[in-house]
Nucleic acid binder design. Structure first.
Lengths: 160, 160
DNA sequence: TTAACTGCAAACGTTTTGCAGGCGG
DNA sequence: CCGCCTGCAAAACGTTTGCAGTTAA
């Protein structure tokens, strides 16, 4: 499934390097490592997670937080929700615009795309003379799996 | 229901008292005071604000936080956004469903109503077998006022 | 009476920052 | 060589909690 990716002309690494240059900042070993880890999968992630994964590569907590901030400013990632007291991030580069259904029970984030929403928001913004830069839409509730009573799902894994 | 008013049969105080009773909790002087303050205006507010306003009425920080949690559970208020690191609340009782434009510069929250959004979300949720309980939509950008650079008096456009 | 409530201060978990030394450009 | 970068530890932040005395019902 590694194929079929969106056509990103420039890799996240390159994109980040460009951003850093325009800001007079530098590409370091730590930053390369972080970008690598962040873009190694399309999963949502939290700072703490990243810190764990990078622990054996000698990247400190502070550097992770500092770099996440830069990545966000560079438009490579974005905060997508808050789970408990932690920020949840996801890719914002080479990834189509979408929003999330958030299960209050199991915490799962389900992505969905809905062209109409962006259109409606454009219209609303225009009406208010508001220069829209982005949005965050979190839909709360309970996911399909968590809705079903336990007894109807005896968890058969016949296909293993 | 009274003339012209929204159809709120019961006052926030009463509503809260009912909620507390069903939970085996009590209506105290502090809780009355807090509900009073919270519903004295329709403005958005933060915990810290409330704490300041209630300081001279001998309501402690802990009690404010604890009561906000109950008010939220009672459906009287809801978290509407995050500003910096703080939760922003607003009334959720006797107040129509709406979302917000949030100015990144001055922090202003502009409310808007858009029937279509709820409809779209209903549809999306159904498609995913998701039981929607609510949503939070924050639109980021810059408000009309902040978009115009010269603030107090429009200076002449002496282009350099 | 008795369980819930309160204020206080200490605790909490996440994120930020000051610092002294290290290194990219 | 300048000044951005790093790890560390400590601080900061909003929020929560343990406690012991207080109070609603």
């Amino acid at each position: 499934m590694s194929l079929g990716e969106v056509e990103v002309a420039v890799s996240p690494q390159e994109k980040f390097r460009e951003f850093l240059q325009t800001k007079g900042l530098r590409m370091t070993r730590e930053r390369v490592t972080i970008v690598e880890q962040v873009f190694s999968s399309h999963e949502h992630f939290e700072a703490e997670q990243l810190i764990q994964q990078l622990a054996d590569q000698n990247v400190s907590r502070s550097t992770v937080y500092r770099t996440l901030k830069h990545l966000e400013e560079a438009g490579l990632i974005r905060k997508v929700a808050r789970q408990d007291a932690r920020d949840v991030f996801e890719h914002d580069y080479g990834y189509p615009q979408h929003d999330h259904l958030i299960c209050k029970k199991c915490g799962e984030l389900i992505e969905f795309q809905q062209e109409l929403i962006a259109q409606v928001l454009d219209e609303v913004a225009r009406k208010h003379g508001f220069r829209m830069e982005g949005h965050r839409l979190e839909v709360y509730g309970m996911c399909d799996a968590c809705c079903r009573p336990p007894k109807t799902r005896p968890k058969k894994l016949n296909l293993l």
